[in-house]
Simulated assay, not measured.
Amino acid sequence: MEPTRLNKYLVDAGVCSRREADRLMEEGRITVDGRRAVLGQKVTGNEKIFVDRKPVKKPESIERVYIAYHKPVGIICTSDPKAKDNIIEAVNYPDGRIFHIGRLDVASSGLILLTNDGDIVNAILRAEGQHEKEYIVKVDKDITDEMVTSLRNGVHIGDDRPTLPAKIMKMGARMFSITIVEGRNRQIRRMCEAVGLNVESLKRIRVMGIKLDDIPPGKWRFLTEQETSALKAALV
Rank of each mutant, 00 (worst) to 15 (best):
residue 85 D to H: 11
residue 61 S to C: 09
residue 58 K to R: 15
residue 47 E to C: 13
residue 60 E to A: 10
residue 121 V to Y: 06
residue 64 R to E: 13
residue 54 K to R: 14
residue 234 A to W: 02
residue 235 L to R: 01
residue 164 L to P: 11
residue 191 M to L: 05
residue 163 T to V: 01
residue 100 H to Q: 13
residue 49 I to L: 06
residue 60 E to D: 13
residue 102 G to Q: 08
residue 64 R to D: 10
residue 236 V to N: 11
residue 139 V to D: 06
residue 235 L to V: 07
residue 99 F to R: 02
residue 183 G to F: 06
residue 27 E to H: 02
residue 119 D to T: 15
residue 70 H to L: 07
residue 227 E to H: 01
residue 118 G to H: 09
residue 220 W to P: 12
residue 12 D to Q: 14
residue 133 K to C: 02
residue 69 Y to R: 01
residue 31 T to W: 10
residue 99 F to K: 00
residue 147 M to G: 03
residue 46 N to S: 15
residue 162 P to Q: 11
residue 111 L to I: 12
residue 90 A to Y: 11
residue 185 N to E: 09
residue 231 L to C: 13
residue 164 L to F: 13
residue 172 G to L: 00
residue 53 R to V: 04
residue 1 M to W: 03
residue 15 V to Q: 03
residue 41 Q to D: 08
residue 82 K to G: 05
residue 12 D to F: 13
residue 41 Q to K: 12
residue 34 G to R: 09
residue 209 G to N: 12
residue 195 V to F: 00
residue 189 R to I: 06
residue 85 D to Q: 05
residue 146 E to D: 14
residue 205 I to C: 07
residue 161 R to C: 10
residue 113 L to V: 06
residue 166 A to I: 13
residue 2 E to L: 10
residue 99 F to V: 01
residue 204 R to W: 08
residue 100 H to K: 05
residue 92 N to F: 09
residue 112 I to E: 04
residue 214 D to V: 03
residue 10 L to M: 08
residue 221 R to S: 04
residue 212 L to N: 02
residue 197 L to P: 00
residue 56 V to D: 07
residue 150 S to N: 13
residue 117 D to Y: 09
